[in-house]
C-alpha cells in the first residue's frame, strides 16, 4: 500500500493538473471568503466552507479520475494485478494519495480563519465542526470518484460519471423530504448533505461520523470488488 501511495502522490505532484486544480479551488474559496466574510463582515468561515462543498462535487472526481482509469489505458494494470500486492492495498494506496491531495487543498484554506482572527473573535466550534464535516464529506466524495474511475479506461468518462453521481446524491435529501414516508426517510438518512448540518452547527455526532466512515469504506470495498470482478469477467 505504501509503495502505491508514494507513487501516486509523486505522480500527482508531477502533473500540472493537480496544481491547476488546487489553484482553482483556492481561487473559488477566496472569492467566497471575500464576499461572504470580508465584505459582509461575517466571522463565520464555516459558511464559506459550506459553499465549498458544492465545488467538491467537481473537484473530488477530478482528483480521482485518473487513479484506476489510467492504469487500464496504459496497460499498467497488469503489473499491479500480477504482483503479490492485494487489490485492497492497491485501492487503499490510491485512495489515501487522493485524500492527501484533498487535505493539502483543505489545509491551505486554514489561512482564511486565521486572517479573520485578526479582526475579532471567531465562532470556533462551528468552524472546527465545518472543517471536520468537510473532511469526512471529501473522503466520501473521493471514494465515489474512485469507484467511477474503476468503471472504465477513460478519465473523462470517470470524471463525468463521478460528477453526475455526486449531483444526484446532492439532491437525494431534498427529494426524500418532499416524498415523505418510509422511502423519504431512507433517502434523507443516506443524504450526506443532511448529515453535514450538525457538523456545521458545531455538533459532533457519533452516528454521523460512523455514517461517513462506513459509507466511504463501503464504496472502497465496491471498488475493490469491481476491480477484481472485471478481471474475472473479461480480462
Amino acid at each position: 500500500m505504501n509503495a502505491i501511495y508514494k507513487k501516486e502522490l509523486k505522480s500527482y505532484f508531477c502533473s500540472p493538473v493537480t496544481y491547476t486544480m488546487i489553484a482553482l479551488f483556492l481561487l473559488l474559496i477566496s472569492i467566497f471568503f471575500y464576499l461572504g466574510n470580508l465584505m459582509s463582515q461575517d466571522p463565520n468561515f464555516g459558511s464559506t466552507l459550506q459553499t465549498g462543498e458544492y465545488f467538491l462535487i467537481f473537484f473530488a472526481p477530478i482528483i480521482t479520475m485518473k487513479l484506476l482509469a489510467e492504469e487500464k489505458k496504459n496497460k499498467t494494470e497488469v503489473l499491479l494485478l500480477t504482483s503479490p500486492a492485494s487489490v485492497v492495498s492497491i485501492v487503499l494506496g490510491k485512495f489515501f494519495a487522493a485524500f492527501t491531495v484533498f487535505m493539502i487543498m483543505v489545509g491551505i484554506t486554514v489561512i482564511y480563519p486565521i486572517i479573520l482572527l485578526f479582526f475579532g473573535t471567531l465562532p470556533t466550534a462551528s468552524i472546527i465542526g465545518n472543517y471536520i464535516g468537510f473532511i469526512f464529506m471529501g473522503a466520501l466524495f473521493l471514494s465515489i470518484g474512485l469507484l467511477a474511475s474503476s468503471l472504465s479506461d477513460s478519465q473523462v468518462l470517470s470524471a463525468v460519471v463521478g460528477i453526475v453521481s455526486l449531483f444526484l446524491l446532492w439532491f437525494v435529501g431534498g427529494i426524500g423530504e418532499s416524498l415523505g414516508g418510509v422511502l423519504g426517510k431512507i433517502l434523507t438518512w443516506i443524504s450526506p448533505i443532511y448529515r453535514y448540518t450538525s457538523f456545521a452547527n458545531g455538533l459532533l455526532k457519533f452516528s454521523d461520523i460512523v455514517f461517513y466512515l462506513s459509507m466511504t469504506g463501503l464504496l472502497l470495498y465496491v471498488t475493490v470488488v469491481n476491480t477484481e470482478r472485471k478481471r474475472w469477467k473479461q480480462g
Binding site: 509503495a3 502505491i4 509523486k10 505522480s11 496504459n74 496497460k75 503489473l79 499491479l80 500480477t82 504482483s83
Partner: peptide, 25 residues
C-alpha cells in the same frame, strides 16, 4: 511477467520505477 505492452509509468525514472516494482513485489 513481461506483458506484450511493457507496463511502464512514463512519469517515473527507470530507477524510481524499478524501486516501485520491488516494493510492489
Amino acid at each position: 511477467y513481461l506483458p506484450e505492452h511493457p507496463p511502464l509509468y512514463m512519469d517515473l525514472t527507470v530507477r524510481e520505477y524499478l524501486n516501485f516494482v520491488a516494493k510492489l513485489r
